[in-house]
Computed example of a mutant assay.
Amino acid sequence: MLKRKFARLPVALFAVLAIVGAQTPALAHDVRTKAASCWFHLMSGANAKYVSARGNLAGYPLQANTEYPPGTWESFCLESQGYDVFAIWSRTTGKYVSVRANVTNYPLRANADFVGPWERFTIQYSGDGTTSYLSLATGKFVSAKMNLSNYPLQANADEIGTWEKFWTADE
Results as ranks from 00 to 15, higher is better:
E79I: 03
L136N: 04
A157G: 03
N150P: 02
E159D: 07
S52K: 11
V142K: 00
D113P: 03
R8I: 13
A7C: 09
Y151D: 00
K5E: 14
I160K: 02
D113G: 15
A155M: 04
A36I: 11
D170M: 13
L57R: 15
A26Q: 13
E119S: 03
I88E: 02
W39Q: 13
A144P: 01
A46R: 03
F76N: 08
T138K: 04
A35P: 07
L27F: 14
S143N: 04
H41P: 05
P70D: 09
A144W: 00
A48R: 08
S75L: 12
V115R: 07
T72A: 12
P70M: 14
N156T: 02
A22E: 12
V20Y: 07
M1G: 15
Y60P: 06
Q154E: 07
L2N: 12
I19H: 09
A144Y: 00
N65P: 06
P61W: 01
Q154H: 05
W73T: 04
S90N: 05
P25I: 07
V97W: 03
G55Y: 05
N102G: 04
G116K: 13
F114I: 07
N111W: 08
F14V: 13
E79P: 02
V16I: 13
N150G: 08
K165V: 06
K165T: 02
N65H: 14
C77G: 02
V142C: 01
P107G: 07
N47M: 00
S126R: 11
F114A: 11
F114V: 11
T66D: 14
V115M: 04
N47Y: 00
G116W: 08
A157S: 06
T104E: 11
K165R: 15
L2D: 14
H29K: 12
V99N: 02
W118P: 01
D158S: 10
V99H: 05
E159S: 13
A48F: 08
P10H: 12
A35F: 08
M1Y: 14
A144G: 01
L17R: 11
T72F: 12
K95C: 11
S135D: 09
N56C: 08
A36V: 13
K145S: 01
T66E: 15
Q63E: 03
F40D: 01
A87Q: 09
G129A: 11
D158M: 05
D84G: 06
A12R: 15
D170G: 09
L42R: 01
Y151E: 00
Y133D: 04
A112W: 02
F14Y: 11
K140Y: 05
M1R: 15
L134Y: 06
N47P: 01
E119R: 05
T130Y: 06
A53V: 05
F40H: 09
I123G: 02
T138C: 11
S75Y: 04
L134I: 06
F121V: 08
Q81W: 14
S90T: 03
A144I: 00
W163E: 00
W73H: 05
S143P: 03
Y133M: 09
T168D: 11
R8A: 14
G139E: 09
S80D: 14
S75T: 12
G94A: 01
S135P: 12
F40T: 08
D30I: 08
L9V: 15
L57F: 15
